[in-house]
Design a protein around this nucleic acid. Structure first.
Length: 728
DNA sequence: ACAGCTGTTCGT
DNA sequence: ACGAACAGCTGT
């Protein structure tokens, strides 16, 4: 805080001294920190216009006077002086854009500017590469968004965007102000604003996420490691779980999982590190909270969304959930006794059943846990709020509590009389548990005495040294033996020729801001990037065709004619938003495409396409030598065909990239390739082709899609016949 | 409190 | 490819 009592305007433009929102002409902006202040509330005001232009706020001028430096900004007066000098240097640098100036100012003030180089980590350098690579960098995307989504009132990217039924985007604040002035028409197109929209405008969450993402990619480099604000992040989760059409019940009980945000293979052991968290670049941290099991799954902490154990009997168990499902469980925080699964009758359509009807055995996931015990693997543990008997369970949702080792396992008669598998879990994480105020993680601790071991049978203890163990020198837990190699990743790769793998890996590396943004602009019905996006008054986004198809054949008014009697008053037909069940029938009478959104999507698409085409071309060039090597070294039929396929793909790509360019290869190659796709002679070929199709988003593919779409809309018309012919 | 739904993975 | 198992979830 400044040394005097003056206070600036807050983020909403409201003066923090008098609490009113002064009109622009009563505000003055600091030339150093660009913060607005309320003129009337200032203890010393500038005397002339020229003074006003060069005015410096009390906070910044106090830095220069350095009587009592604001603690939050700098710790010593010399530092404060140099800070102001640095800010001035930025301001006077004519080569910088306003945006870049703002970014650098923020960087300085956030205090991370000094250790910028040391702190950035892998994520930062990736970001930089992305920008340098051109075509999809964060700044470009931010510019793109600023160009399209800037609120027409304040000319800023809306912090809380709302979309009118006529398809125009504004800040919530500006929109409310407009409506508050009694205006009932859109400021851009003068279309009437429906009453409900005026009284209860809804935030367009997709836009929020998109704008935030673009901002984050800009400020990531500046603000260093992100602070984990999970609740906020999760609240506006982009890729949420969704219910299929087949699901008769709504809600997450029968939902499909949303996208998995981490890049570890499904059979990954141990903590999830920052390098496998492209979304946030911080890995899955101890204490992280998720709303439910599906969200927990999306962050890779525990993949099965019903089962308590994640594991494979011949490989080991990666994670367990403590959800209060088995009454024999005993939780002491740093260690707990866990019960295996099974022993219950789940016939019919039951997913759970509390009563046991037979003994548990060391098979399936119970055996997987035993493998992890024998090998000394780290097992991730999540606790659910449903575990009511444990003091260590979270209040809400599911929480990641770090890794544990299974020190012993055995069988004993459970509370219900049948034998259960038992496991002693002891915590061995480098981070402190969520329930301790301890700053350090675990140290090896003596095993607790377990009374029930007296009546135990089939006791298994680890014989050899544990794979995951404490290193005294480094004072942390680490892999003493290399972790088991993932088998799932190996499945995805095509053994022999590494070409496909590399394309895939490069693609993930290049998962640019624009690509991630495109994912945010998915239709809530078809889950594809929106085509002719519509935003409902309830702020949900759909393709125009998807939304209209949903209500195809329905009329807006129900006639209620009863024969022989008088005609009843026509009734409005309720049409529920597919996402939130609000009545959107009024909106559907004249839905307007969100053109700003559409142009952003189109720009992003062309950007992404360009990048991918470049990537394929680069790939082709890089692989030129290796291809020859592969053909020479490996006469394997499969890898040869694959190489050929890559060749023809790349050639076709060239054709699409530049139509003027004369292609030496004749068209039969492309035809041959298409034939290969139609037939099922070679599965890997097909796989590769699909991959590339997605990347190209070419004309052929596009028209095919349309055929399928139209056949969906009009079954029995030419489209479906086409399909039949194609499959015959 | 409970019936009843169905997505994902494991193992055959 | 298929069925069984699974410590969830929601509406009544």
């Amino acid at each position: 805080m400044a040394h005097n009592n003056d206070l600036p305007c807050d983020g909403d433009g409201r003066c923090m001294t008098c609490k009113i929102n002064p009109p622009e002409e009563e505000k003055i902006t600091c030339k150093t920190c660009v913060t607005p202040w309320h003129l009337d509330c200032l203890s010393s005001r500038p005397q002339t216009l020229a003074d006003a232009a060069q005015w410096e706020c009390p906070d910044c001028s106090s830095l220069v006077c350095s009587n009592a430096p604001p603690s939050a900004v700098a710790s010593g007066s010399e530092q404060a002086d140099s800070l102001v000098a640095a800010i001035r240097a930025i301001e006077s640098d004519a080569s910088l854009s306003d945006q870049e100036k703002a970014r650098r100012r923020q960087q300085l003030l956030s205090g991370s500017g000094n250790d910028d180089d040391a702190d950035g980590g892998g994520k930062l350098s990736d970001e930089k590469k992305e920008v340098a690579g051109g075509g999809g960098g964060g700044n470009d995307v931010l510019k793109l968004l600023s160009g399209s989504f800037n609120c027409s009132f304040c000319m800023q990217l809306p912090e809380r965007p709302v979309t009118t039924p006529c398809g125009h985007n504004f800040c919530l604040k500006c929109f409310e102000k407009w409506v508050g002035q009694g205006k009932r028409t859109c400021a851009i197109c003068r279309t009437a604003i429906p009453h409900k929209m005026a009284s209860q405008p809804r935030i367009n969450a997709s836009l929020v996420i998109a704008i935030r993402m673009a901002k984050m990619t800009r400020s990531n480099a500046a603000s260093g490691p992100l602070k984990p604000y999970y609740s906020v992040l999760n609240q506006n989760k982009p890729d949420k779980a969704y219910t299929t059409e087949r699901a008769k019940k709504t809600g997450k009980a029968n939902a499909c999982s949303g996208k998995i945000f981490v890049t570890v293979p499904p059979d990954h052991f141990g903590p999830i590190p920052a390098e496998n968290d492209p979304e946030r670049g911080m890995g899955v941290l101890v204490g992280e909270n998720w709303e439910d099991r599906l969200e927990c799954r999306q962050w890779g902490a525990h993949l099965p969304h019903v089962a308590g154990i994640c594991g494979q009997s011949d490989y080991g168990a990666q994670s367990v959930a403590l959800s209060g499902g088995y009454e024999d469980d005993e939780d002491h925080g740093e260690w707990f006794l866990y019960t295996g699964s099974g022993g219950r009758d789940l016939s019919g359509n039951k997913r759970t059943n509390k009563t046991q009807s037979f003994d548990q055995k060391f098979d399936k996931s119970n055996e997987a846990l035993r493998v992890s015990c024998k090998m000394g693997y780290p097992v991730r543990v999540v606790r659910s709020h449903k575990e009511k008997r444990s003091a260590y369970a979270p209040e809400k949702g599911v929480r990641y509590d770090g890794v544990y080792r299974i020190e012993k396992c055995w069988r004993k008669p459970g509370i219900q009389g049948y034998k259960v598998c038992r496991y002693l879990f002891v915590r061995c994480d480098n981070d402190p548990a969520p329930w301790t105020s301890d700053e350090n993680g675990d140290r090896p601790r003596p095993l607790p005495t377990i009374k029930e071991l007296k009546e135990a049978s089939d006791v298994t203890e680890r014989k050899g040294p544990p794979s995951w163990d404490y290193n005294e020198e480094k004072a942390c837990w680490l892999w003493k033996v290399p972790p088991p190699e993932s088998r799932k990743q190996a499945d995805r790769r095509d053994v022999g020729d590494g070409t496909q793998t590399r394309i895939v890996r490069r693609k993930t590396q290049m998962m640019s801001v624009s690509e991630r943004l495109l994912k945010e602009f998915c239709c809530l019905i078809c889950h594809k990037v929106m085509n002719l996006p519509l935003t409902t008054p309830c702020a949900h986004n759909f393709c125009k065709s998807c939304l209209q198809d949903t209500f195809a054949g329905q009329t807006f008014i129900k006639e209620r004619n009863c024969e022989g009697r008088r005609t009843l008053r026509a009734q409005k037909n309720i049409m529920k938003c597919p996402s939130c069940s609000n009545d959107i029938s009024e909106y559907l009478q004249n839905p307007q495409v969100n053109r700003e959104l559409m142009s952003v999507i189109e720009s992003l698409q062309s950007q992404t396409k360009e990048m991918e085409e470049n990537a394929v071309l680069e790939e082709e060039m890089l692989n030129e030598d290796e291809k020859n090597d592969v053909i020479q070294e490996d006469k394997n039929e499969k890898s040869e065909t694959e190489v050929k396929d890559v060749c023809s793909e790349a050639n076709e790509d060239v054709k699409e990239t530049d139509e003027n360019q004369v292609i030496a290869k004749p068209s039969p190659k492309a035809n041959k390739k298409r034939k290969a796709v139609g037939g099922t002679e070679n599965a890997p070929n097909k796989k590769l082709h699909e991959e590339t199709n997605v990347m190209m988003d070419g004309d052929i593919n596009g028209s095919e899609n349309q055929t399928i779409k139209s056949s969906n809309v009009n079954p029995g018309l030419a489209g479906s016949e086409d399909l039949k012919v194609a499959s015959a």
